[in-house]
């Protein structure tokens, strides 16, 4: 029987890609989407044809608990992607969409008996690591200063948020842990890397955390379809990039994440620590 999946914030860049990816496998999934307005986000590629059929779409504003509760009713899995995506957004927006909104989604899913929530967290939950070497060198494209072997940051390392946005993702992960341990829901968090509408690792400082749209869609799918006994986990969702500084082995091992894309760094002269560039 097909798994009924609700993708929240469905007109966002990543959520839209995830919806189409799942909707393209109708024998496995029946995909639904909800959003607070029926229009693609400014980040999403302009594609007028991407309008959900009426029977797959719910209007829901995360600030309005009742609308969220209706949208998740009867779902097997909810992919929680509706959020303020701008890390520089003022606290008011973070509060309504990411703090209150995340609570409404977990609580509505509990009340509705939804078995699993896939929570869209962010690699920015670890962004503070970039203040420390060798991650700082990677971010500053001083690739010659990066040792050949270094610790890749894992889901077990303490979070390192850098603004209310990434702190709100730490909050969402805490809710995921709570609803998993106490209410018996399966809650899987994906710390999504840098995804962009161009679907390209074009900024050298962000290349190491890039994630292609198909890689992130694939990881979310692997989470949606994961075995029932997977109750809680946190995965980094980044492509197989050069100088990747977050761990993806855990996602590979637990849910079979197999990224097919990866940003490559072209080094001018690694021995002299000269600047690399994205290809």
């Amino acid at each position: 029987m097909e798994v009924r999946v609700m993708v929240t914030g469905v007109y966002g860049l990543i959520a839209g890609a995830v919806y189409r990816y799942l909707d393209g496998q109708p024998e496995r999934f029946t995909a639904f989407g909800c959003a607070r307005r029926e229009a693609p986000s400014v980040r999403a590629p302009t594609d007028a044809s991407f309008i959900l059929p009426e029977d797959r779409y719910f209007r829901a504003d995360l600030a309005d608990y009742d609308s969220v509760r209706k949208a998740v009713d009867g779902m097997d899995v909810v992919v929680q992607m509706a959020a303020e995506p701008d890390e520089g957004a003022p606290f008011e927006k973070i509060l309504n969409s990411n703090l209150i909104g995340a609570y409404h989604v977990f609580e509505a899913c509990r009340d509705a008996g939804v078995k699993r929530v896939v929570y869209a967290s962010s690699v920015m939950a670890s962004w503070g690591c970039l203040q420390d070497e060798p991650y700082k060198a990677i971010y500053e494209c001083r690739f010659g200063d990066v040792p050949s072997d270094y610790h890749r940051v894992t889901h077990l390392d303490p979070p390192r948020p850098t603004e209310p946005y990434s702190a709100s993702k730490v909050w969402g992960e805490a809710l995921a842990r709570t609803y998993s341990d106490v209410h018996g829901m399966s809650c899987l968090c994906v710390r999504i890397g840098w995804v962009n509408a161009e679907d390209s690792p074009y900024k050298p400082e962000l290349l190491s955390t890039w994630c292609s749209l198909r890689d992130i869609s694939h990881l979310v799918e692997q989470c949606v379809a994961a075995p029932d006994d997977l109750r809680f986990d946190i995965f980094y969702g980044v492509s197989d990039n050069d100088y990747r500084w977050v761990d993806t082995d855990h996602a590979k091992k637990v849910v079979g994440f197999a990224p097919v894309d990866g940003g490559k760094v072209k080094l001018n002269d690694p021995n002299k620590g000269t600047q690399g560039q994205a290809q």
Binding site: P159, R160, R177, T178
Partner: peptide, 29 residues
């Protein structure tokens, strides 16, 4: 230890994790 992952069991505990996350932000940034 303080380096191990958090294990909240309610909203109150989650709110404390939010506070610790803010502490990290205001210290680091």
């Amino acid at each position: 230890t303080h380096l191990d992952p958090v294990r909240p069991l309610n909203l109150y505990a989650s709110s404390k994790i939010w506070g610790e996350a803010l502490a990290r932000v205001y210290a680091d940034v």
